[in-house]
Design a protein around this nucleic acid. Structure first.
Lengths: 193, 193
DNA sequence: CTACGATTTAAACGCTCGTTCAAACTTGTG
DNA sequence: CACAAGTTTGAACGAGCGTTTAAATCGTAG
């Protein structure tokens, strides 16, 4: 198997472990055992545990930012952009990132690595707020503080990983739809005005 | 100082440390040092670290449940109940619980203690959903899955502790108002129908 | 088959941290 | 002042875990 695939495998196992126990609570051995590797072997692929956490963040954020740029470029109204983002975001977190994205405690990173993560996170935040601001200006959303609306949305979505059960009754897209309906509003998008 | 007050002081220091670093990331010494105590001294007040975490949860949940019961008993419409709960909840978390409530990783608790925490949490969830269901039945909220709406609200609120900065531009009540406006809707409550 | 690089292993080290404990100190009471 | 109960200290321990390393194994090109 190519080394780069092996690295992604490790990241997924790590993300799952970090979600369950948190960065400090999850052991390197736990991450390795889930892949039937020895923990020493991980150090062939990553410099240390922090490096794994950082790679998880980078991996998730890069996907997220690509998504954001694609949606921004589409010629659709702001409310539909927001809805699309929420749907894609929920899908991404639940189906590909082992229930984690911005949940993986970044405070565990050392200052230089943390700064790089925050920079990417900021870009994402700016995109979200620009869409929300545009929607408010056009009367698609109730007027208010875009920052608060964004934080509320991101909180609701990020929190999903705390309660989501893959064996539960709801699929990830059902959850995405329900969240988008509530957070963006259903009627405004589908109804004829 | 009375021993019971000392215990609460320790809980507040512990809650702050757990919020910053997570349960496993925060050391017992860190909790003690913030109070200018030695770590050994903590063991005069608590059996062990897990006991401290459990006491934090119990302390927060008891306040939360009292709040919930009070609001439920009030003779006001469901949307106003929900708004009141959100306002009080945000205030409670930010101004009294060091930014933590349901954020303090409960998975770190052993099964018996975890079960007790989950039981209280369930009671809170049931209260929230009953209010939401009533509001939907009366046409105060858009129809949908009450469970999803509750999870979205709790996620948004719980996430606040991840970004709130006491030295920042917004007070806890401004944040509460902004969240309540967005999550419950402003017009329905204040406007004459 | 051989040899060389890539990968994996198992054991060991060292450090951090939760916990214990006996001794010292403080406080209040008769 | 004396004594006892309540509280604090500081050092020590033992376990867990991140990391290192040298040797073993595997895969593949010549």
């Amino acid at each position: 198997m190519a080394a780069v695939e092996r690295r992604v495998e490790i990241l997924k196992s790590a993300a799952a472990a970090f979600r369950r126990r948190g960065y400090h609570g999850a052991s390197v051995d736990e991450i390795a055992s889930a892949l039937e590797m020895t923990k020493g072997n991980l150090y062939y692929y990553f410099r240390n545990k922090e490096d794994i956490l950082y790679a998880c963040h980078e991996y998730s954020l890069d996907i997220l930012l690509r998504l954001m740029r694609d949606v921004i470029a589409e010629p659709i109204p702001a409310d539909q952009k927001l809805r699309k983002l929420i749907l894609a975001f929920v899908h991404l977190i639940l189906d590909e990132l082992q229930g984690t994205a911005l949940t993986l405690d970044p405070e565990a990173l050392s200052p230089p690595l943390l700064a790089k993560v925050i920079a990417k996170r900021d870009e994402f935040d700016r995109g979200m707020r620009a869409i929300i601001q545009a929607g408010m200006d056009q009367g698609l959303f109730a007027k208010g503080d875009p920052k608060m609306m964004e934080f509320a949305i991101m909180g609701a979505v990020n929190w999903i990983s705390k309660w989501f059960d893959p064996a539960g009754p709801m699929t990830s897209s059902e959850i995405g739809e329900a969240f988008a309906d509530y957070l963006v509003g259903r009627s405004r998008v589908t109804a004829v005005r």
